[in-house]
Amino acid sequence: MARSYAQAPITTVSAANGIEYAYREVGEGGVPLVLLIHFRGNLDNWDPALVDALAQRRRVIAFDNTGVGGSSGRTPSTITQMAMDAIAFTDALDLVQIDVLGFSLGSFVAQEIALIRPALVRRVVLASSAPQGAPGMHGWAHWVIDAVGEPEIDPARVLDVFYTQSPESRSAGEKAMGRMFTRTELDAPTTWQTRHAQYDAVSAWGVPNFSLLERVTAIQAPVFVANGDNDPMILPRYSHLLAGLIPQARLKIYPDSAHGFLFQHHAEFADDVEAFLTDPR
């Protein structure tokens, strides 16, 4: 087992759905924590500092879902199918019970996993999240999707979405990016097909529908909802809405941070996640 996420090799596993999934894992013991990444992200978009902190007392697994990065197949255009594919991955690893940490798009998938197969999921962490059908979530602001949705990704524009304009937040973002992309073995980049399919899924998730808001009330697992106080991609008000709808949810908003709050505040966030996952209540 690799001692750090930066050293963890990319491994593959064949699932019953015919997909070859690429993944990295680090740490040992406890209920495995499965990580679900953001829009257009792959294995390299997890901050090693955060993953290593999360893996101090448990096995942590990051993977590329169907058609993403080094995984085979075509990326589906619905959150439900992404969740089914993620479940196929956990089945391929013979995981009987997991904790899930979903970030942004990954947090939508995490909600669906908890609804589709509740017996699989013990606890759920939803970072920069929103419930399906929330008013105002139909797509992102034009400047946001322009920053993260173009064929060529500009790191400076990504920083504008993931971090605030304060010197402290900006510096934290630059350091996080440096940690992400200094390894020798990089994952395959995500494709243009993945970009379109994932944004179709995000847009469909955000079509206003008040009746769909009730779906998350069926999540029985304890849930930790977290966000940055200046997230322009998924506004903090959606985190408050989500935490209010889920029966066993707790909420924390991190200061002077945006979409990448969990990387900017990686030590504090990891401590909060550990406290949540080990809370006997």
Rank of each mutant, 00 (worst) to 15 (best):
P232Q: 00
I19W: 07
Q165L: 08
D44R: 00
P255W: 12
I145Y: 11
Q165S: 12
D99G: 11
I61N: 05
F261N: 09
V68D: 01
A249T: 11
S71E: 09
A88N: 07
A176D: 10
H138K: 14
A114M: 08
S203M: 10
H240G: 11
D146R: 11
I145H: 06
L241D: 04
S72N: 08
P76W: 04
P48A: 09
M177E: 03
D64K: 04
A226D: 13
S4Q: 06
F181T: 01
R281G: 14
L36F: 15
R250W: 06
S4P: 04
R57A: 14
M180Y: 02
R157T: 10
I219E: 00
D85V: 08
G139I: 08
L262C: 15
D91A: 10
L93E: 14
G30L: 12
T184A: 15
L235K: 11
H38C: 10
P32F: 07
V96H: 12
F263S: 13
D44T: 03
S71V: 09
D272M: 05
D94I: 01
N17P: 12
A6G: 07
I19T: 15
A134K: 02
Q165A: 11
V144N: 07
A22S: 15
D99C: 13
E168T: 10
G102I: 03
W143I: 06
A16Q: 15
D272V: 05
V51F: 08
L245H: 10
P167E: 07
A226P: 13
E268H: 13
T164F: 03
T182L: 06
P232L: 01
Y254G: 07
F103S: 04
A15C: 14
S14L: 15
P135N: 08
A2K: 00
G18V: 14
D85G: 04
I234P: 00
V31Q: 01
H266V: 10
